[in-house]
Design a binder for these strands. Structure first.
Lengths: 140, 140
DNA sequence: TCTTGCACCTCTAGTCGCTAGAGGATGTAG
DNA sequence: CTACATCCTCTAGCGACTAGAGGTGCAAGA
């Protein structure tokens, strides 16, 4: 049971020190025990939880979703239907975002290719922005 | 020269009323003339500008980038090199974001497919989050 | 003319997920 | 014992809005 400082926890988990304190503040992470000089002292389980959180954030889950996922992890005997639903919802979001970004990519490419590198009044970048009707993709 | 209220401007441009006032506050939009009763009164050129802004925001340009793009539009005789650079930078961002989202999509699909719809302790969604080593994609 | 009711006004504060900085205490290596 | 890194709490700021309070303007129907 060696004591882990917040700095070590940050290095091991990849979550920055102020962010760890922030997670404690919003209740994602329990309040750790303290040293005599009032410094936070973590255990291995806290590091696991931090890694879980970091990974979930990287996957784009919102803090509220992570709160639910963590409570599921804490109660492993219950149904994983909620976890499944949360992940599926996130998957749908990601797919939509990809589709929308592909459309943007096409439009930006058109703008950049159409730029004659001359004066602004002949520039397609500005022109396309000014006149939405010129877009190929009207979905947005 | 009919007077256009902020509500009409919102409906025509697709930018919400408080957002129009916000844009005025941060100097993206000029201060319009006012009616006797102190209500904002817009002209066609304001609507064009609002549409330009909305379109640029939809393409994911930040407000500071839009500020530059608008100043280019206001001075059509200068070189469009900046507009080109801004659009190219945005294109690179979008391409990176797409790549990263594709990796997330793959990982989320793996999680969702692996969910046995049973109890949490057999659920891959939670498992993968808890143990990053199980990811196929370590880029994140 | 009056009243109803919507649209407008200003202002402040809240959203999300952190991040930065001030000002001070603690812990460790030389 | 003295540096110096690391820790503590607290408040404020970021971007791009959004929500709400509390009040005024204006057009149409009774």
């Amino acid at each position: 049971m060696k004591k882990i400082t917040i700095g070590e926890a940050a290095r091991t988990s990849g979550v920055k020190v102020p962010t760890i304190r922030y997670y404690e503040g919003i209740g994602l992470l329990r309040q750790p025990s303290r040293s005599e000089g009032n410094q936070r002292s973590y255990e291995q389980s806290d590091l696991n939880r931090l890694t879980f959180i970091r990974h979930a954030r990287e996957l784009g889950f919102e803090v509220e979703a992570i709160r639910t996922l963590l409570s599921l992890q804490d109660n492993p005997l219950q149904s994983c239907a909620s976890a499944d639903a949360i992940a599926k919802a996130r998957l749908v979001e990601v797919e939509q975002r990809i589709r929308s970004l592909m459309a943007l990519k096409a439009e930006l490419e058109m703008m950049v290719e159409g730029c004659g590198h001359g004066r602004v009044d002949q520039c397609r970048v500005i022109e396309v922005l000014a006149d939405h009707a010129q877009c190929m993709h009207h979905g947005h």
